Structures are given as C-alpha cells and as structure tokens.
Lab assay of single mutants.
Amino acid sequence: ATVHVKGVTYHFDNPEQAEKFAKRMAKELNGEVHVDGNTWHVD
C-alpha cells in the first residue's frame, strides 16, 4: 500500500498500517484522506 502526503510517498507492506498512517497524518495536517484502491492520498 502507498500513502501520498503533500507530494511525499510512503510505502507500507501492511494496508492497515497505511490506513492508520494516512488518517494520523490527515489529523496532524488538518487534511483530508482519499483512498484509491491500495493508494491513500492526504491533501
């Protein structure tokens, strides 16, 4: 799974980790999470 945060890409072997990371980053950055298959975007 892949997480894109403000133009930076993070790779996770575990999709659950990717989801938790994306949601945590969105919270910290006051952003929104969008999911597209195995790819998470934090804007």
Rank of each mutant, 00 (worst) to 15 (best):
Asn38Asp: 08
His4Arg: 13
His34Trp: 14
Arg24Pro: 00
Val35His: 13
Arg24Val: 09
Glu19Trp: 05
Glu16Tyr: 09
Lys23Trp: 10
Val42Gln: 01
Asp43Trp: 14
Tyr10Phe: 09
Phe21Asp: 01
Ala26Ser: 05
Leu29Lys: 03
Asp43Ala: 10
His4Gly: 03
Met25Cys: 08
Tyr10Ile: 06
Asp13Ile: 08
Val35Asn: 13
Val8Ile: 13
Asp13Trp: 06
Val3Cys: 03
Leu29Arg: 03
Arg24Trp: 12
Asp43Arg: 09
Ala22Ser: 03
Val33Glu: 03
Leu29Asp: 02
Val5Ala: 06
Gly7Leu: 04
Val5Cys: 08
Glu16Cys: 12
Glu32Arg: 13
Thr9Leu: 12
Lys23Gln: 13
Phe21Gln: 02
Asp43His: 14
Val35Met: 12
Glu19Val: 05
Ala1Trp: 15
Ala26Cys: 06
Glu28His: 09
Val3Asn: 00
Arg24Thr: 11
Thr9Arg: 10
Trp40Phe: 14
Gly7Val: 01
Glu19Tyr: 06
Lys20Tyr: 09
Lys23Arg: 13
Pro15Met: 15
Ala18Tyr: 00
Phe12Asp: 00
Ala26Ile: 02
Trp40Ala: 02
Thr2Glu: 09
Ala1Val: 10
Pro15His: 12
Asn38Met: 07
His34Ile: 08
Val42Asn: 02
Lys20Leu: 12
His34Phe: 12
Lys27Met: 12
Trp40Thr: 03
Glu16Trp: 10
Thr39Ala: 15
Val33Gln: 03
Val5Tyr: 06
Gly31Ser: 08
Ala18Glu: 00
Lys23Asn: 12
Val42Lys: 01
Gln17Lys: 10
Asp36Arg: 09
Ala26Pro: 00
Glu16Thr: 10
His41Trp: 15
Phe21Thr: 02
Ala22Ile: 02
Gly37Asn: 06
His11Arg: 08
Leu29Asn: 04
Asn30Ile: 04
Gly37Lys: 06
Asn30Asp: 09
Gly31Phe: 10
Asn14Lys: 08
Pro15Ala: 14
Glu19Met: 07
Tyr10Arg: 03
Gly31Ile: 05
Val42Glu: 02
Arg24Asp: 13
Thr2Val: 12
Thr39Gln: 15
Gln17Asp: 15
Asp13Glu: 12
Asp36Ile: 14
Val35Ile: 09
Gln17Ala: 14
His34Lys: 08
Asn38Pro: 05
Val35Thr: 08
Lys23Val: 11
Lys20Val: 10
Val33Thr: 07
Gly37Leu: 04
Val33Ser: 05
Tyr10Met: 04
Asp36Pro: 01
Asp36Asn: 12
His34Leu: 06
Gln17Thr: 11
Lys27Val: 11
His11Pro: 05
Ala22Lys: 01
Trp40Pro: 02
Ala1Cys: 10
Asp43Tyr: 15
His41Val: 15
Glu32Trp: 14
Val35Gly: 09
His41Met: 08
Val33Gly: 02
Leu29Pro: 01
Asp43Phe: 15
Asp36Ser: 13
Val42His: 01
Glu28Trp: 11
Arg24Met: 14
Asn14Phe: 08
Leu29Cys: 07
His4Tyr: 13
Glu32Pro: 04
Asp13Lys: 09
Ala18His: 00
Tyr10Asp: 00
Gly7Glu: 05
Lys20Arg: 12
Gly7Trp: 05
His11Cys: 09
His4Phe: 12
Glu16Asp: 12
Glu28Ile: 13
Tyr10His: 06
Val35Glu: 05
Thr9Glu: 10
Val8Arg: 13
Gly37Ala: 04
Asn38Tyr: 08
Ala1Asp: 05
Ala26Val: 04
Lys27Leu: 13
Leu29Gln: 04
Glu32Met: 14
Gly7Ile: 02
Ala26Asn: 02
Glu28Pro: 01
Phe21Pro: 00
Asn30Gly: 14
Lys23Pro: 01
Asn30Tyr: 06
Ala18Met: 01
Val42Met: 02
Gln17Leu: 12
Asp13Ala: 11
Asp36Thr: 11
His4Val: 15
Pro15Arg: 12
Trp40Asn: 02
Thr9His: 08
His11Ile: 09
Thr2Met: 11
Lys23Asp: 08
Glu16Asn: 08
Thr9Trp: 14
Gly37Arg: 04
Lys27Glu: 12
Thr9Asp: 08
Ala22Cys: 03
Val33Ala: 14
His34Gly: 04
Arg24Gly: 08
Phe12Ile: 01
His41Thr: 13
Val8Glu: 10
Thr2Ser: 11
Ala1Arg: 05
Lys6Gln: 13
Leu29Met: 09
Val3Leu: 01
Gln17Trp: 07
His41Asn: 05
Tyr10Thr: 03
Arg24Ile: 12
Asn30His: 10
Ala26Lys: 03
Lys27Gln: 12
Val33Arg: 02
His41Cys: 13
Val3Ile: 02
Val35Phe: 14
Leu29Glu: 03
Asn30Pro: 05
Gln17Cys: 14
Gly37Phe: 03
Phe12Met: 03
Arg24Asn: 11
Val33Asn: 02
Asn30Met: 09
Gly31Pro: 01
Trp40Glu: 02
Lys6Gly: 14
Glu32Thr: 15
Arg24Glu: 14
His34Ala: 05
Lys23Gly: 05
Glu32Ser: 15
Gly7Pro: 02
Ala22Gly: 02
Trp40Asp: 02
His41Arg: 08
Gly31Ala: 14
Val8Gly: 05
Asp43Thr: 15
Glu16Lys: 10
Ala1Gly: 10
Met25Trp: 07
Thr39Arg: 15
Phe12Thr: 00
Val5Trp: 04
Asn38His: 07
Val3His: 00
Ala18Ser: 01
Val42Arg: 00
Gly37His: 04
His4Cys: 09
Pro15Ile: 11
Val5Met: 06
Gly31Cys: 15
His41Lys: 06
Thr9Lys: 10
Trp40Tyr: 14
Lys6Leu: 15
His4Glu: 09
Met25Val: 09
Ala22Leu: 02
Asp13Ser: 11
Thr9Val: 15
Glu32Asn: 12
Gly31Arg: 05
His4Leu: 14
Val8Ser: 07
Glu28Val: 11
Asp36Gln: 11
Asp13Arg: 07
Asn14Gln: 08
Phe12Gln: 00
His34Asn: 05
Lys20His: 11
Ala1Gln: 09
Val5Pro: 00
Asn38Cys: 06
His11Glu: 08
Pro15Asn: 14
Asn14Ala: 08
Glu16Gly: 09
